[in-house]
Nucleic acid binder design. Structure first.
Lengths: 216, 216
DNA sequence: GGCAGTAAGTTAACAGTGTTAAGTTAACAC
DNA sequence: GTGTTAACTTAACACTGTTAACTTACTGCC
């Protein structure tokens, strides 16, 4: 039955070619700027060939982002090294903001575009909650650690709620930057300052009161 | 010269008809879901008639949002009543989140969609910085008040930076809700809780340390 | 070796999009 | 009455995502 396997391999190879071409266009042009015809032209296939591999444009780009969700989680697990729970959360925030500002088009599609709510498939369910493949789970784990080691105030107990709050705070910095960063209406402070201030303010607002006035 | 004036009035009347029709469609369908042809059909004009009044689709909807920017500022000035600087900031945040969750399509277009950076015209310059017409200026004023009355820590001095941080924090809550609120991947806490927690955490992180453990 | 079945990939077309160039038409000033 | 202006229309262009019907190459089986 080696034939079937070769066929599958060949199919997934052109599937990957589609994904690669789409990614390359997507990075520079953004979702709206990429058309099925351009992707097809890039790999020298007919536009409809893509529909053999993906149901529609949305699914194609969801797959792209799926890879990035995993990559983000991977960056977290591989480069968040601090052992101090608060410092670890600060690192996570820094990496996240870095990811967003470096990949604005992906970020926009991943976190700023409403997608029709799709049911989780088995692959999703396998990844969800696993900190090595699910960046949100990683954040939640780090928050849970901070709670358990007594870094936060006593009335801060809900790791889910705090994770969502911390996520929203850094997401706010990035997404506002992507959407309005060029707007002359606001005299924007440097991105780095905004990011640092946000992390500083939120972690300060959460942590147990201490006599240490500053920490940098 | 009464003719010219009547002509202008008539022109601005159909302009308003276009805006009204566009708004109505926009609220339910969102930017992508509205086409020039649908707007035209609604007011029983040909699609190209719109181009007499607006350069393109983007300008049409920018005008729509322009009205909403002003409306938001108006809501601020008319309903933010608290005299305590910190409580005032909390109120501003609450109103802003309310505005965003009630008008998701407008919010998405106003604050989540990158627009080609357009030069400020004279109307813009007139509004900018005026708290009664510029919601951001209103926020900045409130932050400045909080700084001057000593509500914040001593090292918190830059009203611009703090305004941008506070804005980003509530924007994060709303925009994440709009883009990912239906996503099953995350077990979302109720919107109200997320909003309240965000305001609580950020204001706590900014304010001068006091012995009052809780304030609600 | 010849034949049916499978599925990747094709062509042609549909229904829609934003936008423009050219033409109409009605009201005005002189 | 004539010429000008400007709101508005018709027709068209160059796209878009997506589908139905077709081709074609390769497979497993007799």
């Amino acid at each position: 039955m080696g034939v079937k396997e070769r066929r599958e391999r060949e199919k997934s190879e052109t599937r990957d070619k589609i994904l690669d071409a789409a990614r390359e266009l997507f990075v520079t042009e953004g979702y709206e700027g990429v058309s099925m015809r351009k992707v097809a032209e890039k790999i020298e296939y007919s536009p409809t060939a893509i529909y053999v591999h993906f149901a529609d444009k949305n699914e194609l780009f969801r797959e792209l982002c799926h890879q990035d969700y995993a990559r983000l989680a991977e960056v977290f697990t591989s480069s968040v090294i601090s052992t101090d729970p608060l410092e670890r959360l600060r690192q996570i925030g820094g990496i996240y903001i870095d990811f967003g500002t470096r990949n604005p088009n992906h970020y926009k599609f991943m976190f700023m575009t409403p997608h029709p709510a799709h049911q989780l498939d088995e692959v999703d369910r396998e990844m969800k909650g696993n900190p090595e493949m699910d960046a949100y789970a990683f954040l939640k784990w780090a928050v849970q650690q901070a709670i358990e080691t007594g870094c936060f105030r006593e009335d801060v107990q809900d790791a889910e709620l705090i994770s969502q709050t911390l996520w929203a705070s850094v997401h706010g910095v990035i997404s506002l930057h992507i959407a309005k960063g060029d707007d002359e209406w606001v005299d924007w402070r440097p991105m780095r300052d905004r990011a640092e201030t946000m992390l500083d303010v939120t972690l300060r607002g959460l942590r147990r009161e201490a006599k240490t006035g500053k920490d940098e």
